[in-house]
């Protein structure tokens, strides 16, 4: 009796140790198609790319060297009841690309959809596969800046805050919540390095936030209900100082101008961009990464944007107060 119990226990033990626990991290691969087209309302030429999904042996997608970008797709833009076929071409890739050869790109010259009308992109891929997406074009004339001081340093009359305010003109008097704004204030400066003048660009935060005794710059968010951004003098001073931290030769720095840029985009593009801005700490293990697509029938993005830019003059005395020189 004891022997049979022992044998049974042994069999159970061996079964448990050796039982198959294989599992399939991948589901059956089914090909998907991807369309990317971002309409630049300031440009006369629009571009798109079409690609297909791929599978790899293992889990490292960088091992794929078969170019997934597709030529010979039939890509159209429909705007104001007119259908425009995008032409295909090949554009050289950067040197570090995994794919040999140029990238197939679709383009449409002399086309600037910018009056607020609806625009639709379609990609016909054969076998009745069609990718489609629609959005509304942006009219640059609907966005304009209010008059205000555009000099650095900001005048004390404005509380030491360099403020930019913009307005939107809505023909139908309704605020368009589908429009998002990405503001930034950048400064271009040059530095002499080994006798050569190099160009740099730096972004200013809106204000500084003290976190555990350390100042952290807070930058403007991408949002749809903002129409003003203010930059506090201490935040600007902090960046002005930081560009030459540790370098005693302040006179090697030449300051040119600053620019306030306002990128106006539709909700699709704003969401796509924001979805990429996720972060994790060292110990977190997130299973699912957020993704966003507005392409019906596939993946990718169809969005529109325009940019508005304001030049900010930087006073010479302010530049020199940091030991720098005016360009």
């Amino acid at each position: 009796m004891k022997k049979s119990v022992l044998v049974a226990a042994l069999i159970l033990f061996i079964t448990l140790v050796s039982c198959d626990d294989s599992f399939e991290p991948k589901s059956e691969f089914s090909e998907k198609y991807i369309l990317n087209c971002i309409i630049n309302g300031d440009s006369t030429t629009q571009y798109a790319t079409v690609s297909k999904s791929f599978n790899v042996d293992g889990y490292d997608p960088y091992t794929n060297h078969n170019d997934p970008f597709l030529k010979n797709a039939f890509v159209t833009l429909t705007y104001k009841n007119n259908v425009y076929r995008m032409r295909d071409t090949l554009v050289s890739r950067l040197g570090d690309s995994r794919y040999s050869g140029p990238i197939p790109v679709y383009y449409l010259p002399n086309f600037t959809p910018n009056d607020g009308s609806e625009i639709t992109v379609r990609a016909f891929l054969g076998d009745e596969k069609t990718l489609i997406a629609a959005t509304k074009s942006l009219n640059p004339n609907n966005f304009y800046f209010s008059n205000s001081s555009r000099d650095l340093p900001a005048s004390n009359n404005y509380g030491g805050v360099l403020r930019f305010t913009w307005k939107e003109f809505y023909p139908d008097q309704n605020q368009d919540e589908e429009i998002f704004f990405a503001p930034d204030l950048i400064m271009v400066y040059y530095k002499i390095e080994n006798g050569i003048e190099k160009r740099y660009q730096v972004e200013f935060p809106m204000y500084l936030f003290n976190q555990q005794g350390k100042d952290v710059g807070i930058y403007p968010p991408i949002a749809n209900r903002i129409n003003t951004v203010g930059y506090e003098t201490p935040a600007i001073d902090s960046i002005m100082r930081s560009i030459s931290t540790g370098d005693p030769n302040k006179s090697n720095y030449f300051i040119d101008k600053a620019y306030f840029r306002l990128l106006v985009m539709d909700k699709n593009l704003a969401t796509y961009y924001s979805a990429q801005q996720t972060f994790l700490d060292e110990f977190s293990v997130r299973i699912n990464q957020p993704d966003f697509s507005n392409i019906d029938g596939g993946l990718g993005i169809f969005g529109v944007y325009i940019t508005k830019k304001v030049t900010v003059n930087i006073e010479q005395f302010y530049i020199e107060s940091f030991g720098y020189r005016k360009k």
């Binding site: 991807i34 971002i38 571009y47 791929f54 950067l94 990238i103 961009y273």
Partner: peptide, 25 residues
Amino acid sequence: PFTQIAGYYEKLSIDDVFAQNYLFD
């Protein structure tokens, strides 16, 4: 339960919305 991998694709990365021509590379 867990979510399976259904494949991969080349996703357009927009690191800087102000950058131009990111559609190419």
